[in-house]
Design a protein around this nucleic acid. Sequence first.
DNA 1: TTGGGATAGTTTATTATCGAACTAATACAT
DNA 2: ATGTATTAGTTCGATAATAAACTATCCCAA
Lengths: 135, 135
Amino acid sequence: MPRIDVGKIWSLNYRLLMSVITSVAPDITELGLETKELFVLAEVDAHPHPAELAGVLSMPKPSVTMYVKRLEASGFLRREIDGADLRRHRLILTPEGRKTMERGLALLSKAFGARLARLNSAQQSELAKLLEKLS
Amino acid sequence: MPRIDVGKIWSLNYRLLMSVITSVAPDITELGLETKELFVLAEVDAHPHPAELAGVLSMPKPSVTMYVKRLEASGFLRREIDGADLRRHRLILTPEGRKTMERGLALLSKAFGARLARLNSAQQSELAKLLEKLS
DNA sequence: TTGGGATAGTTTATTATCGAACTAATACAT
DNA sequence: ATGTATTAGTTCGATAATAAACTATCCCAA
């Protein structure tokens, strides 16, 4: 059994994700948001507080502040002060925000799916299983 | 049409990579380079020309110019004009650059390897094979 | 041979990003 | 109760990233 080259797996995977992001970025921009803003939108349901979003998305807090500000200005989400903890803001997707988020994720899925199409069905399931184990 | 949840795999994978990068970034910085610069260094052997690097790493050309400039100033690589095509610059790792690149990749491998250790060695090979097909 | 188009890399000018420091609210120990 | 530490989110200022435009070189069809 040959020794596995971790760096190689890393680099293949990294390059795959980056090239997919790069390829969909223009289409996402047409929806009225940037890719990082889409990632934020996509996690708002599961993590409605900015500090959590920063953690889960590995983004600095000031960046989240900025993305949220823009998303709010675009009408994609709104903010409520959390009554139980006045420091916290609860983020809520607007219907428009949800629609846009779903469209954006669909674009991403389509682009990623196009790459995945190089694998047969069994291989796709295998990849899904392996990546799921890693996450 | 894939039978798996492409969007979910995407997001798990994306977050995995981002969290690994974030966790090693401070250590990489201590080697005297930034993570993106490390990615450049790591691909120089396989892709010695800036334009190729930009393509393979999904980076804009001006970013590569900047990273290369810094890496050269730090003594991690040097440039030669390609005699066969005077537009092209061939990048060459210095011994110091190679050492630093290997150290950086070791840090990344260690952090990513911790995740990868959830797979047995056959699964790791399988993952490498599948990712290679995708890239 | 030459000129129109492509390609490699850089510069410029603008926007995006984010560490550090800040304010406000909470938690917690004494 | 009171001081101290912690946490949520923001602001500020400095750096990083990059689109657009540029120079230089190459390619190649007529």
